[in-house]
Design a protein around this nucleic acid. Sequence first.
DNA 1: GCGACGATGGGCT
DNA 2: GCCCATCGTCGCA
Length: 197
Amino acid sequence: MDLDGASRIPRGFFARSTLTVARDLIGKLLIKSEAAGPVGGIIRETEAYIGEEDLACHAKAGRTARTAVMYGEPGHAYVYFNYGMHWLFNIVTEPAGQPAAVLIRAIEPVFGLERIRMRRSGRAPREWTNGPAKLCQALRIDRAQNGLDLCAAESLLYLARPAQEKVIRVTQTPRVGLNNVPEPWKSIHWRFLAHSL
DNA sequence: GCGACGATGGGCT
DNA sequence: GCCCATCGTCGCA
């Protein structure tokens, strides 16, 4: 796969229902432009976090300095720090005023493999970007990208539709890591993953 | 292959 | 002070 013919995904894509966006992002490209060239790959796993009612969503606490980005325009990056050492990358969805986002949980590395190998040194290739914090390490995504407009023409971090998008089967399961979240939020099938094969 | 667990710091009550 | 949208390592099979 190469980036010739790939087109940047417009804001309208992200302004839709979060579940639709989370589903449709499977198979799209997450790309970061670096001086050495693009780094990134094909999105294989996402999760939806939807509104103040969703008790797994950070917006459950209302609008704060941290969650303000989620209340803003769709197509912006929401990057937050977790467990004292990890960054997690989300994309804001739904029209402005509705706090929601899609967490990118895994990508298949395609571009900038040499840099990814260095940044994930010592790990097997399958461990390079198969987790939300791992892919942030691989792409060097951190607080510097929080609030970034991923749809701006000049943005160095963006989503793209591949020139030849494959048909991918998508499976839904409960979201991961919600140990103390009450039902129905804990078990609702808001995780989307590319069917293995 | 699996389950248990420690690291580590910001956000919120 | 408690709670994490996690990862890597350890022990064991």
